[in-house]
Design a binder for these strands. Structure first.
Lengths: 152, 152
DNA sequence: CCTGCTTCATTGAACCTTCAACCAACCTAG
DNA sequence: CTAGGTTGGTTGAAGGTTCAATGAAGCAGG
């Protein structure tokens, strides 16, 4: 309850409405394409992408959850679904008995290949085709600083 | 399947990871405060705020759904909950028999007053304390242009 | 005026996420 | 070595969102 301005000024409000608009609508826009092309939602897609970029297609559940911006519980449920579909597999970590490792399977890579081209095209359509190089850098820097605050 | 670069370049990827990070994590961060201070989720809060800013605290369901960046179906479910709690009321539109109007009640305003100070403080903490005036304007402009593409 | 199309809104079922409880493995101070 | 705390992960239940179906009301052409 420190002495702060009671609400946002006009410039801040304009920015906030645009930002929250993107935040609320972007996931839905992405999921339409992912569902259509590969029957995945955005979180499932990011799990598969996360594993694809990892050494040996393998990552600890905790690290994967953080990378995908989701809770461990959420990942655990999603991993069960993905495992039942054969897109990933899980096994105990040899180094730490508490940890579980998740690995991308060959069918998982295939599914990713189904989704990726359309996904990239959409991301370009919605974001990068609108921004020049300098604006892209600018947006990245600002988002990164805001993200750092959210994560802290 | 037009001839496009197969994936994002490094600058684009950096920007995308930061942006999607904000998109995935911001709602959760906001909801912690709203749930604690007023037992609302972010969508419910934005519904109440939308009505508060409207003439006579009243708005058509469709317009409200668009303003809140949600589907009409989602709003319909949420409106039922809010109405059961007495925070809003719904009634037929006199001008158009298809439309329903939603109005903010006095208890709704009270609930909003419970949530708002903490919400503003949090929005400042996460976003505007990190940005100077020029960056705020910059972010607003970029987000607005991206949002326009998502909405189209 | 009546037929078919579109808009506005609600509903139930399926699905997904969150929350809290739980358990096992690790770590560390005494 | 062991009791207590921390970390990593899973689970079931509760709650929220999406999707498709439904229906009422408006509108436009013949």
């Amino acid at each position: 309850m420190r002495d702060e301005a009671p609400w946002l000024d006009e410039a801040e409000m304009t920015t906030w409405l645009a930002l929250i608009g993107v935040v609320m609508r972007l996931p839905g826009a992405l999921e339409v394409q992912l569902r259509r092309d590969a029957d995945l939602n955005h979180f499932e897609y990011s799990v598969l992408v996360g594993l694809e970029h990892a050494e040996g297609g393998t990552m600890r559940m905790s690290d994967l959850a953080f990378l995908c911006n989701g809770s461990l519980s959420r990942l655990s449920h999603v991993a069960r679904r993905l495992e039942n579909e054969g897109l990933i597999e899980r096994f105990a970590c040899p180094d730490d008995g508490r940890s579980t490792l998740a690995r991308l399977t060959a069918p998982g890579r295939e599914r990713l290949a189904q989704a990726a081209p359309g996904h990239v095209r959409l991301v370009r359509d919605l974001v990068f085709d609108e921004l020049d190089d300098d604006e892209t850098r600018q947006m990245g820097e600002l988002a990164k600083r805001i993200l750092a605050r959210i994560q802290s």
